[in-house]
């Protein structure tokens, strides 16, 4: 029974071409570890240098998006004698890496607050519809710009993913409850 259940789960992932799957709380050491295994697998697969670097680059940005922005999180209660920066906080998401024909695909999903959906949707639509040169220009502009409010990085992650991808980004949202939606982003390399 147990083997059957897990085997079913594995078979479902396999059917979708998934080679790596991680669902759960993501931390920086998880990124390091899975990233190392991913590099090894791509090397064994004899992927060319550009493909290897691009798949890895997309993986890093997608993982860091979950770590920084997922709206589903577990927190330790704030210790009374510690500054709030000592608060432990981990965020939940799902990430898969697989193959579709000759292409590699990296998919990531996590909860977002519904009030962020419009902003994310228009930002990603814009990036998806740009030509390579337009994307390059926007990347450069953002590199010099102040990161937007709420950003914990350079605000370049989605653009970096789009630049590394060989096909337009795919993304989608589905409402979960009154406050949350599930956000999924797929990059093909």
């Amino acid at each position: 029974m147990l083997a059957g259940q897990l085997m079913d789960m594995r078979a479902m992932l396999h059917k979708h071409g998934v080679i790596f799957a991680y669902s759960g709380y993501v931390t920086e050491p998880v990124l390091s570890g899975v990233g190392e295994a991913l590099k090894q697998k791509l090397t064994i697969d004899d992927a060319d240098t550009k493909t290897l670097r691009s798949v890895f680059a997309v993986f890093v940005e997608q993982m860091q998006n979950i770590i920084r922005y997922s709206a589903e999180k577990a927190q330790s209660s704030p210790p009374s004698d510690q500054p709030s920066s000592a608060l432990m906080e981990i965020r939940y998401g799902i990430l898969t890496i697989g193959k579709e024909g000759d292409d590699y695909v990296v998919c990531a999903g996590n909860l977002v607050v519904r009030t962020d959906v419009d902003r994310l949707n228009s930002k990603l639509s814009k990036i998806r519809d740009l030509s390579r040169d337009e994307l390059k220009a926007l990347y450069k502009e953002q590199l010099r710009a102040e990161p937007e409010q709420g950003s914990k990085g350079a605000g370049l992650g989605f653009m970096e993913i789009a630049r590394r991808a060989s096909k337009p980004l795919e993304f989608d949202f589905t409402n979960i409850d009154r406050d949350h939606a599930f956000f999924a982003l797929k990059a093909t390399i």
Partner: peptide, 13 residues
């Protein structure tokens, strides 16, 4: 540099 992520790109700039 062999690889840098998007946050590092800002630091390099």
């Amino acid at each position: 540099l062999i690889y840098l992520n998007s946050s590092s790109a800002k630091a390099i700039m």
